[in-house]
């Protein structure tokens, strides 16, 4: 298949950047999207051009490193997958494909399609944990029974891979889905409830400081999330925060 790629090129954080067209041929439907970019990059290197910088690592949809805003959607047109799991069979011969980096003030572009998502790490460092030392001298794992539904719900929230698609898709660049997934996971478990109030307040405070936008409940994040994290987590965080604001 023959494609016309329109890729955001930006030399560095301070460069203005622009969309550049790259025609590419002989793309097979079985290739993953990133393999298609690999081919483009090999061609660019052979021509002596600067290859397109993009983040990727595990290429099986779990590390959360790959990003890319493809044809107007985070992780492209398919649902429930990351860019590395997107296959070229989703496109047609002759298609024009727009490839852009995540766009958010809190995710500054490093180069081309690579962005800096360390804001997420800083939010996590503000409270995304249970304050228990790793000594292993805790009580027996089965000492606290947890209802299966709660455990499953916590698991579903915990499957967040921190890719940032929620922020990228959100018309407001809000990080609520990411933050609420962690808040929810720990609020649903007895181990996490002890610090739940401080956690939600501290994480939200850092989230605001980092310059993410405000949630307006559009639900775009849930649709584009490769792990299909539910909007319900955002409601739960709103609840937790409200409670914390009144109590503490």
């Amino acid at each position: 298949m023959k494609l016309n790629l329109k890729i955001w090129r930006q030399k560095g954080p301070n460069d203005k950047g622009s969309m550049v067209s790259y025609p590419i041929e002989n793309i097979d439907g079985d290739m993953s999207f990133l393999e298609m970019l690999d081919i483009l990059n090999d061609q660019l290197v052979e021509k002596g051009d600067d290859p397109v910088a993009f983040d990727h690592d595990c290429r099986e949809g779990i590390c959360g490193m790959c990003s890319l805003y493809i044809n107007g959607e985070a992780h492209g047109p398919d649902r429930g997958i990351t860019t590395c799991q997107l296959h070229m069979r989703k496109f047609n011969d002759g298609d024009t494909i727009y490839i852009e980096p995540w766009r958010a003030k809190a995710f500054p572009v490093i180069k081309d399609l690579m962005v800096d998502r360390s804001a997420f790490d800083r939010i996590m460092a503000a409270g995304g944990f249970v304050s228990v030392n790793t000594s292993g001298n805790t009580q027996d794992a089965n000492a606290i029974p947890i209802p299966k539904d709660d455990a499953d719900e916590a698991f579903n929230a915990a499957t967040c891979i921190g890719c940032g698609a929620c922020v990228a898709s959100c018309v407001n660049s809000s990080a609520m889905l990411f933050v609420s997934a962690k808040v929810s996971q720990l609020a649903l478990l007895p181990q996490g409830q002890i610090e739940a109030m401080d956690r939600v307040k501290n994480m939200v405070a850092v989230m605001d400081e980092e310059g993410f936008g405000n949630c307006s409940n559009t639900g775009a994040c849930e649709v584009e999330c490769p792990k299909e994290i539910s909007l319900e987590n955002i409601a739960r965080m709103n609840r937790e925060f409200l409670k914390a604001s009144f109590v503490k």
Binding site: Y69, G72, A104, N172, G213, A220, V223
Partner: peptide, 19 residues
């Protein structure tokens, strides 16, 4: 605030797909 949170806009976006 929301406008400020995305200083550079997308060149091509299809929000109708998700919201």
């Amino acid at each position: 605030q929301n406008r400020k949170a995305r200083p550079v806009k997308y060149a091509h976006t299809r929000p109708q797909e998700n919201s």
